[in-house]
Design a protein around this nucleic acid. Sequence first.
DNA 1: ATTTAAGCGAGACGGTACGTCATGTCTTGTG
DNA 2: CACAAGACATGACGTACCGTCTCGCTTAAAT
Lengths: 211, 211, 211, 211
Amino acid sequence: MNDTFRFVKRKIMSADTDTQAPAEPNDTRHSIGARKNPETEAAILDAAAEIIAEKGIGGLRMEAVARRAKAGKATLYRWWPTRGALLLAVYQRKKPHMTYRDTGSLYQDLLHFANDLITVWKGDNGLFFKAIIAEAESDPDVTDKLREYHAERLEALCAVTRRARDRGDIPADEDPTIRAEMLISLLWQRLINNRLDEKIDGHVRMLANSD
Amino acid sequence: MNDTFRFVKRKIMSADTDTQAPAEPNDTRHSIGARKNPETEAAILDAAAEIIAEKGIGGLRMEAVARRAKAGKATLYRWWPTRGALLLAVYQRKKPHMTYRDTGSLYQDLLHFANDLITVWKGDNGLFFKAIIAEAESDPDVTDKLREYHAERLEALCAVTRRARDRGDIPADEDPTIRAEMLISLLWQRLINNRLDEKIDGHVRMLANSD
Amino acid sequence: MNDTFRFVKRKIMSADTDTQAPAEPNDTRHSIGARKNPETEAAILDAAAEIIAEKGIGGLRMEAVARRAKAGKATLYRWWPTRGALLLAVYQRKKPHMTYRDTGSLYQDLLHFANDLITVWKGDNGLFFKAIIAEAESDPDVTDKLREYHAERLEALCAVTRRARDRGDIPADEDPTIRAEMLISLLWQRLINNRLDEKIDGHVRMLANSD
Amino acid sequence: MNDTFRFVKRKIMSADTDTQAPAEPNDTRHSIGARKNPETEAAILDAAAEIIAEKGIGGLRMEAVARRAKAGKATLYRWWPTRGALLLAVYQRKKPHMTYRDTGSLYQDLLHFANDLITVWKGDNGLFFKAIIAEAESDPDVTDKLREYHAERLEALCAVTRRARDRGDIPADEDPTIRAEMLISLLWQRLINNRLDEKIDGHVRMLANSD
DNA sequence: ATTTAAGCGAGACGGTACGTCATGTCTTGTG
DNA sequence: CACAAGACATGACGTACCGTCTCGCTTAAAT
């Protein structure tokens, strides 16, 4: 077999009205071999986060993410095949780390928790969390993840109410998850209704009252 | 210019009620003069309700509504210019009428309310309400309407807690909206997390405990 | 049914980095009702013709046609669902009208025909015809159409050879399509091999010789 | 950054030999040092030939070739940088060896040649040759190669017509390439139009007639 | 014997085009 | 003038290939 037909030559495309403009071919990212490029991942998650922050989850378009991240759509879909997956990945990066205090007073502990969460949610995080709630309506994966978040947060807050029960601040026969779930539910509702600014100390006091 | 070369190869459409239903071509609705035709409105809202029930709110397409209702898209957009507006109109027609009992016991009253609402939500209504919550994330009109619903329900439930306060079942200095809002928030959270089946009597008992 | 939910309001999109630039919304074509818009058809066929003339059939992209014609892709696909269909429609518009002379000399008649066709093919028409030949390899519709073209041209040219046979210029028992098909085949081969410039009078003379 | 949220929902691929064939994962080919591996070359050309035979040249994808040949895309592009180059290499391997007989009768010689070529083309070779004609429309290298093939075949067939002229079977002053080119052109046209089955003896007889 | 250099399978990457779908606007013809 | 019908420009969808790239490896030739 000879090499008669081996001729290396690339067709040069003349700059063209019809073919989509390839823009300037400057500092584009490249493959780093047969494995995921962390720079690409970061660029995509950053882009998605920016867009969600700007327009909410309803305005999150996969194309727009790829465009802003200067990534190919195939790359985007390779790692995050649905909008929900992308949304969750973004949220994961900025998931707030909540601290749960132990002041010896249930009222103080719950109030601190509530105020901390409200503070966090007044920034971008609230917008993201609302987006996840909205997406959960249609994406079962997001639904599951949302419930998982809820369970985690509930469990953490239960440590507070359990301490209170051990101290005798709330009835010994009451499930400590009850008051924790009530508080978290209240905060979800306030977030959804854009009512984070309204006062909650009355509610917290009610929850902290022994009986 | 003749059409010699126009030959259309149409792909076979998957049998889907909305996608291409010619149905019976008789009895088409017509204009009834220079005013809105109630038959048209009913047909559209029915169609929308059916589609939401079948595929959820994420599957609600204006085109599909028009097609199923045998209505023109222009007609549809004339009266319900956004998906949210249509959604709200549909919900308006099937909004549950809640009854608030007066048994003389706060625990019983709240439990009845909660169980009634849970029962309602386990049918289509819950799906619709979740859809509205999701849509509220991106449509300010829906957000407003959702808050309005919440306020209405809250006010109605407050009648219950106010009676309890008057009876002395809860502290006299406590805002009666507090326990009402807590209960409603709990139910929202349960709806969102698909946890309507879990028990709530412990929570209600806590809310009904006086001091 | 009240009109509580009827609120006409369009969301104004802020000019945006992510959403594809909508360009200037100047003199865009519009629908003219529930029927095909001839302006649109013309714009699309013009655009396709230009692109083929510039880059050949291999460079014909449906997207590029839509872009240049300022037409939607859906519109394009509605009327010309394949590249081949579009190609044929374009060719139809510029199909050369051949004239077949009757000089009393077979040689002269064939030579005129050949030179006329060569002249036509040296312009865009040859490029188009080559494109159709190429497309026929993969698109059965184009294959059929190409054969049909061939048959038409053959039939027309047969009138010339039939006259010659009646005159006794070629054997009475010879099928008149034979020499016609030979000449056309020769010209096809010359077109495909970019050899239209090479002389053909020797070939024509051979075909015109009685026997 | 963990991968908690990376969950890939892969669609079920339609069973297609090229699309995702892991096949036996053993005995992978390797480099044999700083030179081209003949096994690789064979595997690639075989794969390409199979695919063309199955789906035609329009269905020839570089990716599919690499996949089926279990070769890296870089390897493929290193040696055959364009589809046309690959196509030509494949054709080179199965290029029919034509025999040109000398029966002493021009009619018999031409008829044998024509029938031999038709027989060859009715197998895969015709498909390949049509593919090359199609590809020539857009790839100048293929155009050149095609013309070269044509010239070779023409020259070989000219030996036949030249003998006939020497015998006095055709006019002494006629270029022997003329009848050879006519016959080849006819066969090309028949191939392109899928008309290889139609009879050609009338045409050949005309070409064999002396004066 | 060790270094160097290239071939090789693998597959991620930035892209472009595909063909389909829904959007919201429009213009018709009918009643 | 409301209405059905549906064409239209727009743009996102998710998929498929393109041609380039880097990786980690294998082997043979050069040192």
